[in-house]
Design a protein around this nucleic acid. Sequence first.
DNA 1: AAAGCTAATATGTACGTACTTATTTTGTCA
DNA 2: TGACAAAATAAGTACGTACATATTAGCTTT
Lengths: 233, 233
Amino acid sequence: MTPPTRLSWKDVRDEIHKAILSGRYGPGDRLPRDADIAEEMNCARSTVQRAMQDLSDSGLVDRRRKGGTRVRAEPVTRATLDIPITRREVEQRGGRYGYQLIRRVEETAPHSVLATFELTTPQPMQRIEALHFSDGRPYILEDRWVCPETVPEIRDLDLTSQSANEWLVLNKPYSRCDMRFFAITAEPQMAELLETEVGAALLVIERTTWIETAPITTVKAITAPGYRLLTTS
Amino acid sequence: MTPPTRLSWKDVRDEIHKAILSGRYGPGDRLPRDADIAEEMNCARSTVQRAMQDLSDSGLVDRRRKGGTRVRAEPVTRATLDIPITRREVEQRGGRYGYQLIRRVEETAPHSVLATFELTTPQPMQRIEALHFSDGRPYILEDRWVCPETVPEIRDLDLTSQSANEWLVLNKPYSRCDMRFFAITAEPQMAELLETEVGAALLVIERTTWIETAPITTVKAITAPGYRLLTTS
DNA sequence: AAAGCTAATATGTACGTACTTATTTTGTCA
DNA sequence: TGACAAAATAAGTACGTACATATTAGCTTT
């Protein structure tokens, strides 16, 4: 006498996911129509549609009108990354957060920065270098450019106690964010700031944000040796 | 006389997103109830619900029953990464793909590998080292462990022409995948295989997959110098 | 006061219908 | 045979209702 519990779209999603995992449907195979699955599983088509949309979002299946649903022929491994404010990241790991402004100048942005922003006309930008600490040890070295045209407040902002990272995230929501990850070897200056040896391998997390097409900021977060970036499971 | 075009949930989502971007609702602020937004925007509550769910998924707002919807107080930068099969990645960049098996042995997995799989009992695993090439130049060095208990087929598999990467992705769908990113300096052996100098900074993409709780494979994709990992915009 | 019960409330979800839209298939005509 | 138009198809979406569920607020009891 189990109660006639209705299927949630997540149940349906997991069911279909399992069918794919089991090999019942292999890469490229076509799945039944939503309507048929709905009938078979005794639920509404809209429920199946919601489930399928989720599977499509996670890259497991391809859906096309009239073409139906098929298992992706060349699957991708899709992962989601959460990058919190650095202060919060440190605190969540149980560390004591520290922050120090290193340098702050306004100068014409180099070509590489303009290119990152997809700009062609040169313009002055604020360059801000700062260090984030965890338990007194260097954690992330931040090399940032901020566009004063989009963010005029930056000029009057006190960045000795609050980091640009934090102020921007809280006050300048973006509509587009590109991220890049790569490795570099520590140059002498970086090495000194991060209290490591020259030549150490460092993971760099580079982020660029826009509001519509107006550039906000681009930042290289140069992490201390041993830093590991994890996906959210 | 514009046609009375109905609002799609994506329209509603973008509208609310814009309201947040404009600063009308700041971090921590509470948004109107779904029902009120629905009335204001002249659509059904279910439409607003779908929009809000998406905003919640992308980390912009927090939703709680009875508590209502509020803008996330400590926003996170959420990014999505797509990692395709290496062959496809090379080909999409317009390169000619090459592959070479370097080494393949079955041995007891070291503790670090067991720990990655969240296993406690030692067991034999296949270790597979292989090189992926782009236009004849080393592109990714793959250091992989496969669990024969979960993937018995691996023992009889010819890996001289097809990479384990490709076979696994096409034949062993997973239910869980953890990823880690970090930087290392090239050791002599790696440097030789990747045709670079000892000490070069290399980005490592480490992936571990399970089917339910059964370990499938864990792999360190050691990328050639200059490799950049990008988010899908 | 503190603890526990009750009511109120906002989101979560399913359902079935109606309609829209992209894509493929089929059919027609030159 | 090829080009083009028409029909068929399957996903995409909106809507309004009904009900479920988590969480808060208020009220009662000790």
